[in-house]
């Protein structure tokens, strides 16, 4: 395994929205570091700003203050075609209706590399095959994407991101709407990808107990603060107890679980 290097860093980053005259700051002074070969999970209550953070890190949204650096260059100074070769996304939004097969959908990940007509070269097909092999989707490639289950579709979308062949993959709630078996298989896949392909993978999730067990580092967003550390350290610091404001939800550090009292 090659040495782990910082890929994404944020410096004194403030995120939020400008709406009319009011500036709505969601979180400020973020100093995060993401390195290759690591699996990061981003947790926090609904509405605390996980999506805003992801959108800012991926360069879709402008930060209020500070900056996001991709390989030591500010992400807003990098052309979108270059970012597409560094960073791929798996989103929660529903796909518009179309006739794509699983293979064609994964192949779309090659767009940043193809010519003006989008023709696939031999290298492209090779990369697509690798992505399919890593995600073990061989049996589905000829199916239409709407014929497969939600869990399978999520894996297909991850394969598409893999085909895009980027050092960083960012996923927005990849396990929502999935049952436990599929949640675990998505998590395990992400874990495998980060260690085997040395990619930097960041995902947001509400499955905190699973994330604690599997991720190398966690980013915990609460209303006042954002913590980044290894899960065991975060537990000893008691960060998870402050995650939800509700008095009836408590975190049990020994079991690594939330308990309803």
């Amino acid at each position: 395994m090659s040495t782990n290097t910082n890929i994404i860093t944020t410096q004194e980053l403030s995120i939020g929205y400008h709406s009319k005259r009011i500036t709505n700051t969601i979180a400020s002074n973020l100093n995060l570091e993401l390195t290759s070969g690591q699996l990061y999970s981003l947790v926090g209550a609904n509405g605390v700003g996980k999506s805003t953070l992801l959108r800012t890190i991926t360069g879709i949204q402008k930060p209020l203050q500070g900056s996001v650096f991709l390989h030591e260059k500010s992400i807003h100074d990098i052309p979108s075609t270059a970012i597409a070769q560094e960073l791929s996304l798996v989103l929660t939004e529903k796909l518009p209706p179309n006739n794509l097969t699983v293979y064609e959908l994964i192949a779309l990940g090659r767009q940043p590399y193809t010519n003006w007509l989008g023709q696939l070269s031999a290298t492209d097909h090779e990369k697509i095959k690798q992505a399919i092999a890593l995600t073990q989707l061989e049996h589905l490639t000829n199916k239409k994407y709407y014929e497969i289950s939600d869990g399978q579709l999520q894996i297909v979308l991850i394969a598409r991101a893999l085909a895009q062949d980027t050092p960083i993959i960012i996923l927005d709630e990849p396990t929502t709407h999935l049952d436990l078996v599929h949640k675990v298989s998505v998590f395990k896949l992400l874990k495998k990808l980060s260690s085997e392909t040395n990619k930097c993978i960041l995902f947001s999730t509400h499955d905190i107990d699973l994330a604690i067990q599997l991720s190398d580092q966690m980013i915990v967003m609460t209303e006042n603060q954002v913590h980044q550390d290894q899960p065991c350290n975060l537990i000893t610091q008691g960060v998870f107890s402050s995650l939800f404001k509700d008095e009836s939800i408590a975190f049990d550090g020994e079991k690594g679980k939330f308990i309803i009292s």
Binding site: S80, T81, L87, E93, L95, P96, L108, P112
Partner: peptide, 15 residues
């Protein structure tokens, strides 16, 4: 082709 996945995916692929 990129827009088949929606605008946000298309953007993330450098469109």
């Amino acid at each position: 082709d990129a827009l088949l996945l929606g605008e946000n995916y298309a953007k993330s692929m450098g469109l």
